[in-house]
Each structure stands twice: as C-alpha cells, then as structure tokens.
Amino acid sequence: MSPECSRVLDALGQPLPPELAAHVASCAECRALVEGFDALEPVEAPAMKVAVPARALEELAAHPTPTPWWREVLMLMGAYVGLTALGALALTPLGLMLNSAPPGVVAGLALLVLLAMVGGAVVALAPMRRMAWGLVGTCTAVVALSVVLGGSGLAVKGFLAGAIGCMRTHMLLSALPLLSALVMLRRSAYHPARAVAAGLSAGAVGLLLLHVHCPDGSAAHLAASHVGPWLLLGGLALLVRSRLPTDNHTP
C-alpha cells in the first residue's frame, strides 16, 4: 500500500482533494476501496433502550477501589513462591540439590528459569494490547536450549525410567501453579499468547525444582523429561483456557 493509498483511506467519507482524486483514478486498488466504502452506507443504530447493568452498579458499589493488574501478578507470584517452597520441602528427603553441573551454571540456569516464571506471569496478566508471540517464542527457545545445553552430561538412570520419574514429578510440581495461573487468567480476555505464557510460567515451578534436584544431566534426558513437559504445560494451558469461561473481557 503506497502512502497515497493510505491517505485515500484516511480521507474516506470526505470529498477527496484533487491530487487524491487523481490517484484514485489511476489506482485500481483505490478505486475498489472507494467503491467498497461507498457500497456500505452507514445504518443508524435503532433507538433501543439498553437496560442499565444492575450487576455493574452493584460491583462498583461493592468495590469502589479498582484492583491494579500488578496486584494479580504479585498474587500469582506469591502462589508460585509458596508452591515452590512446598515442592522443595517435599523433595528435601530425597536430596534437593543433586544437580552435579558446576554451581555457577546451576545458579545461572535457575535464575533464567526464575526470570521465565516472572516474565511469563507478567505477559499473561498485564493489560497489553499487542501480544508478542515473537517475545514468548524467543524467550521459550532461549530457556529450553539453555536448560538442555547446560546439563552436567551425566546419565544416571536408564532413559525411560529417568524420563517417567521426572515427567511425573514435573507434572505433580506444576499442577497447582497451573491451576492458580488459570484462575488468574479468567480475569482478563482470552488470548492464546497469554495462555501459553501462563502455562510456561506455571511450568517453570516444576522446571526449577527439577533443575536443582535431578542428578541426570544428559541432554536427551533434559530435553525429553524437563523441557518437554514444560512446553507441554504451555500447550495444556492454552487448551484448558480456551474452554474456560471468562469473568472479565478487558484486554
């Protein structure tokens, strides 16, 4: 679309200045545009009486102070922290810090996963109009690759036995965070990118605990049993959220 075409669009419904009229005469697309516009004569909305929404007035009287969106992010983060602590307590008898990679790598990756947890919660709940699929995809790829490539390389168990154990632990650790995220997600309009971000953010609880706890650091194990279920949780959140009713349609 040329700058002239864009100006024609802006001038629709008004008399076109001579230079734009000349452009329309020479541009087939703009002729089609103007004819399409003219074909749609605006129809005045009928004089209907829309009932004052009583529930909205009740809601306003009951909650005169609005809840800022960041408070919901803090609530979700609070739930994640509490559930991470519970998960850590549950894993302590088996040994919480069994990752044999260098401590700097373990700490760095843990920080990255924590950032994914916080960032995912913000993307899921912040009132953003433009949903950044690119940002969600890039961050997911960075975290996934870092976790897979940042392992100790040590294979402790057989692939299948290790995979089943870690997947089960991952799902158990992430179930309640995912539930919390889905509850929060219903408080704003459905958007697939929000749902995926929420699922990944909730899955980061399981990913973080497995990252420090699991002694198996082979790339195959990390990809299939740590990162795989994490990605799966993103998809699961999307699937479940798309079927849940929405409490609030604000963007």
């Binding site: 909205a56 809840t67 604000t250």
Partner: peptide, 8 residues
Amino acid sequence: SMVRGRGR
C-alpha cells in the same frame, strides 16, 4: 467487565 477491569 468495564467495572471489574477498570484497574487494567
């Protein structure tokens, strides 16, 4: 929704 979500 406008009332509930005015914090957004």
